[in-house]
């Protein structure tokens, strides 16, 4: 692909370069928020939203094609269901060991990463669910919006 056609869809070269740096950092921050949700403010939902925002930034600056190549929508919808399913499964595992959503994992030393039993696992499940779900919603709405906008143009003619 020539340099010129690469710049045709998406924003300018500056925004593309900056956003491809930032995407990784934003996603990393999202993972941090989700993984340390039991120790600091944050959690699965906030972390998932931040990671989804990284992909949305990629979509806005480059194009839908680029971000869908990195994160195909079929994978997004599968991960969406998988995250929710694993959260329910976590509850059911607790159910088998005493009570529904029982914290059945060995709790480690306080104020370390592995100190919360199942809460870390639940945060990860929610992170996967929210990340995939929000990105899928964004892509879905933008595809629908495109159809509507094109239809309106057709009406005006």
């Amino acid at each position: 692909m020539s340099n010129k056609s690469k710049h045709q869809d998406g924003m300018s070269l500056i925004s593309k370069t900056i956003s491809s740096f930032m995407t990784a950092l934003i996603a990393l921050f999202g993972f941090y928020i989700a993984f340390y949700g039991h120790l600091t403010p944050g959690g699965g939902f906030a972390g998932g939203v931040i990671i989804a925002a990284a992909f949305i930034l990629l979509t806005l600056s480059h194009s839908k094609k680029v971000s869908l190549k990195k994160f195909p929508d079929i994978i997004a919808s599968l991960l969406d269901n998988f995250g929710a399913l694993s959260f329910v499964a976590l509850g059911l595992l607790g159910f088998l060991s005493g009570a529904f959503f029982m914290n059945f994992v060995q709790k480690g030393k306080a104020f370390t990463l592995l100190s919360s039993g199942t809460i870390l696992l639940a945060n990860i499940a929610i992170m996967i669910k929210v990340m995939a779900g929000l990105f899928a919603i964004f892509v879905g709405l933008s595809i629908f919006g495109r159809i509507v906008a094109e239809g309106e143009k057709g009406d005006m003619r």
């Binding site: 079929i74 919808s77 599968l78 269901n81 998988f82 929710a84 399913l85 329910v88 499964a89 509850g91 059911l92 159910f95 529904f100």
Partner: peptide, 20 residues
């Protein structure tokens, strides 16, 4: 008792995965 909530909720996502 919790199965009244857990079973339909888990199945909802599980069937979406298998139906792919």
């Amino acid at each position: 008792i919790p199965l009244f909530v857990a079973v339909p909720m888990g199945l909802a996502f599980f069937t979406l995965i298998t139906s792919k």
